[in-house]
Each structure stands twice: as structure tokens, then as C-alpha cells.
Amino acid sequence: MARAVTQQRKIINTTLAWGVGLLIFFPILWTILTSFKTEAQAIADPPIFLGFDWTLENYAAVMERSNYSRFLWNSIIIAGGSTLLGILIAVPAAWSMAFVPSKRTKDILLWMLSTKMLPAVGVLYPIYLICIQFGILDSKIALVIILMLINLPIIVWMLYTYFKEIPGEILEAARMDGASLKEEVLYVLTPMAIPGIASTVLLNVILAWNEAFWTLNLTAAKAAPLTAFIASYSSPEGLFYAKLSAASTMAIAPILILGWFSQKQLVSGLTFGAVK
């Protein structure tokens, strides 16, 4: 509304919004702060907010206790690999659904989404058996495939939404201008679709990174990613707040930073184009 907003109202809004924002963010902030405290300061009564001796000892201790870089590497491979594979399969599917729609396109999309509602636990044992059969239990390849499959409907749907926003007339113009199918995809479609593909990739990296059913149940020593790394701190001997905080910070930092940079694109993608 093009109307003058009183300064007073703006101050109230700002205070309120920042208050709520900080409240929501506080658990994360507290975790990060605690990760730099000594164990004694971490459980001090009353709690110390900022006036503590900053230390990196917890990070050193966590690195020593468990091989963080291997968990991190597993997370990167699993999240990245499943997303890449998913994109490769989803791009042609979404392309054809967006540009050569048939009467069944909508039904196929809804069916795909409905496969996401199949409870994972209902098929846990069969998947477990299949993994043993192929000798890929506790391997990254198994998780890459499984996470690709569970996220595929979302990838297809997001890409479909983005592709649909590319006007069909532009592709027809390319065809009239003499572009072959290959040239049309290479010079016209891909450059226009890249922003959409990028935000789909980001969202799926985040979803795969944070997936905590299959990664916990199908991995042990070899292929465990950061979700499992952090879950190991739920056992009693790991109950040191400062170290727990350090480990948590290390587990979430990469994706938190990635997410902050891309939050705008993420939201529009996640609504499947239903909210503009």
C-alpha cells in the first residue's frame, strides 16, 4: 500500500519481528555459542551467555573422537550423488510433461507425489534384504540410489513447475528459426531453465543431507553420513554439552550456509508452483 507508515509503527514492527526471529533462531545460536565454551561453563548455573572463555578445544576433541571428515565426505557423496542422479532422470521427464502435456500428465504427477507417502518403515526390511542381496548394505551407492528415489517425485515436480513457466511460444520460435531439437535444448531451453534447475539441486541437496531414516538404518561404520555421526552422541558417554554442540555445529554448518544463500529460490520451488 502506497501510504505513509508512521515511524512508530515501523519501530514496533521491527522490534516484534526481530524478537520473534531471534527466538526462533536462538536454539541454533545457543548451540554455536556453547560449542566454544569449556564443558564446565556449558553447564554453569546460571547459564553464561557471552562472557565465557572462548575455546576451540571441543572441535579438537570431536575431531579426535570420531573421523569427522569421513562422515562429511559420505554426506557430500550421498547428498550430491543422489541429487545429480535424480536431476539426470528428472529433467527429461519434467521437460516432456511441461512441453508435451497429455491428459494423464496431472495424474502421473500426483501419482509420483503419492509414492512419497509410502511409509519408509513399511518397506525397510525388503530394502534391507535387497541391499544384502546386491552386497551394497552400508555402502554409499545404496544410499545414493535410495535417496534419489525418495526425492525423485519432488525433483520432477519442481522442475515441471519451472519448465512450465517457460513460454511454449519461445520454443516454437526456436523451431521456426531453424533450431534442431538438440540446438533448441542447448541454446534456448537450458539457459532459460538453469535458475530453476539450480534451486531444485539446492533443495534436494538439503533434503538428502538431512535425511535421517534410511541413512540411520542402512549404514554402519563404512557409509555413515553426518546424521549418523551426530546420532552417536545420543548415547550416554557422549553427553558433554560443549562437545555435542561442536559436533552439531560441524554437522549443520555446511547446509545452513548453503541454505541461507539460496532461501529465496528454495521457497518458490518448494511450493510446486502453487504459490507465487
Partner: peptide, 11 residues
Amino acid sequence: AMVFQSYALYP
């Protein structure tokens, strides 16, 4: 050669 209603320029 065709000229489209939406112009269909490559953005």
C-alpha cells in the same frame, strides 16, 4: 518466418 503474439524473444 513467424512473429508471435508474445514476441517469443529469447530472454
